[in-house]
Each structure stands twice: as C-alpha cells, then as structure tokens.
C-alpha cells in the first residue's frame, strides 16, 4: 500500500498535537481578538474600571461614598468576588468557549482547518489557547487597573498586593476551567450558549445555595475557594449560613478545577475528532 509522504517543504506527516495547536492558535488569535465578541468582553471587563473611576472622582470631590468601614481594598474585594468571579469569568467563558468550533462551523471556515494535516484535537486545543489569551488579555488589565484605582482608598497597595497576585491567578484559572467546560458544551450541544448560561446563572447558583454536596458539581465552588477577599455578611442569617457551609481547601480547589479542565478538553477533542460537520449552504 502506498504511504502518505510529505511533499518538499511540508512538515512531517502527523504533526504533533501541541505543535499543530500552536499553529491553530496563531491563526485563530487575531480573528478571535478582533471580533465583536471582544467588544462585549471589553465592555464587561471595563465595568469595574468605570465604577472605580467614578468612586475616585466622587472621593476627589469629597462626596462621602465610602462609609461604614468600607475601604478601597474592601470594595475591590467585593467587585472581584461578586463581579469578576461570579459574573465576568463564567459569562466570558460561555461566550468564547461555546463558540470555539461553533463559530468556524457557522462561518463555514472549518473546512480549511479540517482538511490540513493536523489532528482535529489540535484545532480544539489551539482555539482554546487563543480564547485563553484573548479573554485574559482583556480581563487581567481591567482587574489590575481597578486595583490600582481602588486599593489606595483608605488602604495600601502594599498590603493588598499579595491578594492581587492571587486574584490574577484566579482569573486565569477561572478562564482555564470554565473555558474547557464550555468548549465541551459547545461541541456537544446544538444550542450551547443557552445551555452555558443556564449552567452559570441557574445551576451554579442553585448548587451553591443548597446545603449538602451539590456545590461540588459546580466550578464556582472551587474557584471561590481560592478567593482571598472578605465577603460582606449583612445579616445574621448570612453569617450562620456561612458557618454551616465551608470553603474548600486549596488542594481540593486545584483538584476540582484541574479535573473540570482535563475532562472538558478531552470531551471536546473527542467529540470534534469523531463528528461529521455538514455545512449548510
């Protein structure tokens, strides 16, 4: 039987998954970055920066907006937990993750990727890496800017700097885990966006609110376990509820998020490798 041999100038047959992924990443990054999705990302990521700017402006005019023991680091912590971890990261991951392959199918450009001498799994991995770079390159600067604006209000940059380091790691880890999960969702379901939003705003909130072990079936449970900031406890009920639940340890968080990432990516790669994509004309 005649074997497939590379032509002069071409790479070896069966380019490795990682090398091929980097090439798909290179091709996809610019396309992903300059898409309308990034405008949405920038709007979401820019919100805490705008809030921080407004706060600073009001304080500059001596408007008493920070009362009741609230300091800049506390506001930053609240924003990070309440907005970045619970909203921005999962929502951006849904929008990017579910579209990794779906966008190429919808635009009917998947053909160009699937008729190249690269494993299909590398298309998933390369586009996933592009999403990670794209999402983090927008959100990380926003978190840093927000911190720079808020932390000095009745606080000190130095004191909250170690927490910022942890926060930035959490952003990356959050995108890694949620992205892998929604990459899998995007390859399995026909309406992945709807499913992803239901997961984030429905299932995760429900699982975290209910007593018992259900919360372990959410990504937020493990991600929130890493957040170093204090959370407000407005009512005694909140405090008692917090006393009954417990935050997972760092090791448990790392294992949980790692498992979600690996399983998500494996499922996505497997589905894409075996699926036939019939493009509509």
């Amino acid at each position: 039987m005649e074997q497939a041999t590379p032509r002069p100038g071409a790479g070896p047959a069966g380019t490795g998954v990682l090398a091929a992924s980097m090439r798909v990443f290179d091709l996809s990054l610019g396309r992903m970055l300059w898409s309308r999705r990034t405008i949405f990302t920038a709007l979401v990521a820019g919100l805490p920066v705008v809030v921080a700017l407004v706060l600073r402006t009001l304080l500059a005019f001596e408007v008493p907006v920070m009362q009741g023991g609230v300091t800049g680091p506390v506001v930053f912590g609240l924003m990070f937990w309440g907005f970045v971890v619970r909203f921005a990261i999962p929502v951006l991951a849904v929008f990017y993750g579910t579209a990794l392959i779906a966008d190429e199918v919808e635009d009917r450009t998947i053909t160009y990727l699937f008729t190249r001498p690269i494993p299909r799994a590398s298309v998933v991995l390369g586009k996933y890496l592009a999403y990670l770079v794209c999402a983090t390159s927008v959100l990380l600067p926003a978190v840093v800017l927000t911190w720079l604006l808020l932390a000095p209000i009745d606080g000190a940059l130095a004191a909250s700097f170690p927490d910022l380091g942890v926060d930035l790691v959490i952003v990356v880890v959050g995108f890694v885990a949620y992205g892998a999960l929604f990459a899998a969702v995007g390859t399995i379901f026909d309406r992945p966006l709807l499913f992803g939003l239901l997961f984030v705003f429905g299932w995760e909130n429900l699982a975290l609110a209910l007593p018992g072990q259900l919360r372990r079936a959410s990504v937020a449970h493990y991600l929130q376990g890493l957040v170093p900031h204090a959370m407000p406890a407005d009512t005694p009920l909140d405090v008692l509820q917090r006393a009954m639940t417990g935050a997972p340890g760092v090791l448990e968080c790392a294992l949980g998020l790692g498992l979600v990432t690996v399983v998500g990516l494996l499922i996505a790669a497997r589905v894409v490798s075996n699926r036939e994509y019939v493009l509509e004309h």
Binding site: M1, E2, Q3, A4, T5, P6, R7, A10, G11, A13, G14, T15, L27, G30, R31, W34, D107, R108, T109, T111, Y112, T115, R116, P117, I118, P119, R120, S273, N274, L279, H281
Partner: peptide
Amino acid sequence: IFGEPVWRNPGIYHRIGFCPEQDAFYERM
C-alpha cells in the same frame, strides 16, 4: 485516496489540496 483511508487520517492532507465550494473566509485577514 492513494490507497489509504481518508477519514481520521490527517497525514493524507499533505497530498491533498481542497478548494471548497462555499464562499467562506477569514474576511479580516
């Protein structure tokens, strides 16, 4: 193709060039 199966055999694409029918591109590139 050339005596080899083509489904899930990415190595074969070194020997194949495909021009699809659809008018689809990465328009910004």
